[in-house]
Design a protein around this nucleic acid. Structure first.
Lengths: 193, 193
DNA sequence: CTTATTTCTAAGCGAATGTTTAGATATTAA
DNA sequence: TTAATATCTAAACATTCGCTTAGAAATAAG
């Protein structure tokens, strides 16, 4: 009996992720979403409840997008520390590309919202935890291969790499490419045995 | 002949800096400024042109505020690397304190505005350059004292510390204190000879 | 085809945004 | 005391915000 949806909610969510990524939460108006998603405001509300809920879903989508995308080089690594450099380089490419010159959505949101919104803060924290776990698994393998100092604190080093990643995202919005290459080299130096 | 101002524009600017620091540029409305600064919208416009100009002035004021405040431990350092740790600890205290639980104004603005506004971007870049110079001067002294490896790239290390500082600011909006202590320790380890 | 159900379009809701203005108030040189 | 000038208060400006609604259009079971 019912009429069919003329759009795919999954595709729309993907588009919404990019719009929020580029403009931030507050600066993304429903008029802009309407235009970029190609669907009416009514449809946005009937499919995603409201702007806040849509944003939270977009944030979670970003986590999936990263996990299945550029984080794969870390996840599939056999412990080669150069994989970390490769990730950082791809990361800078991504966040500075003309396609999405908008840093990291998580970092942007952390700066914009922080912990003032409990639901959003929870997703941010989960992202940080995911990143820590990914780095930790890689470092464990590196450690087993003898690439790291014996007495190293792996968890601390993983947390260190997470904060370095977010710092990289932030400075990418201000400084030029050579600046980040220098940072990446400095971080890699600090990992050496 | 004229009537006197019933407020001190310098004091008002200082207050404006804190309001923007806490809420960000877009989320700071003129009604809020009116309330927090204790002066009328008319007075804001007659003294500071408009919201954008007021924000740029507040950003520059923040740079001065930091230079004359918690950055002094770096500026006055004789090259003791522990001064860097002291700075990081004070920095985390500041940005996580109940008084201003809002990270670093520069980092927040970089995430919110980035390079989309030329005038603001210029102030951000100047801040990064200032930070780099401050770290560089300290590292030079450390190097002369033989506290660093002979073949170290001082400029690269200074840039590294700037990005670490901004990363610290960002993760302070998501993670708890112990997380940052771990990061600070990891950064300090990476500085050792 | 009829009819029940859902999605669509498009207009409109009250509230908030940055900015401006009209008029009252205060100050000081003459 | 008077007159000129700057600053104050408070209201209003047009625009945009997130969100809702009334009614037309489309779908598929009966």
């Amino acid at each position: 009996m019912p009429r069919k949806k003329q759009y795919d909610p999954e595709e729309v969510l993907q588009k919404a992720m990019h719009v929020f990524w580029k403009n931030g939460y507050r600066s993304t108006s429903l008029r802009l979403l309407e235009k970029e998603l190609g669907i009416n405001q009514f449809s946005i509300y009937s499919s995603f409840e409201n702007k806040h809920t849509l944003f939270v879903k977009a944030l979670k989508r970003y986590r999936k997008y990263m996990r299945e995308g550029i984080l794969q080089v870390l996840i599939r690594s056999d412990g080669d520390l150069e994989d970390i450099r490769r990730f950082f380089k791809t990361f800078v490419d991504t966040i500075q590309s003309a396609k999405s010159p908008s840093g990291c959505l998580i970092a942007n949101t952390a700066a914009e919202i922080g912990s003032s919104d409990h639901e959003i803060h929870k997703v941010l924290k989960e992202y940080f935890d995911m990143m820590e776990k990914i780095f930790l698994e890689l470092l464990k393998k590196s450690h087993q291969r003898g690439l790291l100092a014996d007495d190293i604190n792996l968890r601390r080093k993983a947390q260190y790499l997470v904060t370095c990643t977010e710092g990289l995202s932030l400075s990418s919005k201000v400084m030029e490419r050579s600046y980040h290459n220098a940072f990446i080299s400095a971080v890699m130096d600090s990992l050496e045995k």
